[in-house]
Amino acid sequence: MSLIERFEALLAGGKDNALLRFTLGTEHLKAGAVAKAVEHLRAAVAHEASYSAAWKALGKALAESGDAEGAKEAYRRGIDAAEGHGDKQAAKEMAVFLKRLEKAPPAV
């Protein structure tokens, strides 16, 4: 049984929390299943809006899916969450990713 299958089994068994959804999202992102990653990462931040690592991963997943505007919004919300926790490094990283997206030419 793969790691994703194990975590999906926990979810199916009624365990549903921000950490489980974050882990599922990041594992799906690593596996190239971007849509599933977005689904789980959105659920993670719905569980815990202050989860800056989940916002960062969601921004990455949305950017990879081609949703630049969604990614920008995720990074903005992640920066707010990180700053609220005093997590300066996470806020700085997301600010860099946000700036890159803002400078990128619009998709045609």
Rank of each mutant, 00 (worst) to 15 (best):
E102G: 02
E27K: 12
F22Y: 15
G86I: 10
R77S: 13
E39D: 11
E64M: 10
G86Q: 10
L41P: 03
A91P: 00
L101G: 01
K30H: 10
P106T: 01
H40I: 03
L20Y: 08
A63W: 00
A31Y: 08
A104E: 14
H85E: 15
A82F: 05
K30R: 14
L20R: 07
K56Y: 12
H40E: 06
D80R: 12
H28S: 08
G14L: 07
S50I: 09
H28C: 08
S50R: 15
A35K: 13
L101Y: 02
A18C: 11
G32A: 03
G32W: 06
V38T: 07
L29W: 01
E5F: 10
H28L: 07
A90P: 01
E93K: 09
A81V: 02
L3W: 11
A61Q: 01
G70Q: 04
V45E: 06
G86F: 09
D67T: 05
E64F: 06
I4A: 06
G70L: 03
A37C: 09
T23L: 08
E5A: 15
E5L: 12
L10R: 14
L10V: 08
K56I: 08
A57W: 00
L58S: 03
R42N: 14
K30Y: 05
W55C: 04
L3Y: 13
H85D: 15
V96M: 14
A91D: 05
A44E: 00
Y75S: 00
R21D: 05
A61S: 10
M94P: 01
A9S: 14
L24F: 03
R76M: 04
M94W: 03
K30D: 05
A54Q: 07
A44D: 01
I79H: 02
G84A: 13
E5N: 13
G66W: 03
A91M: 07
K56N: 14
N17Q: 08
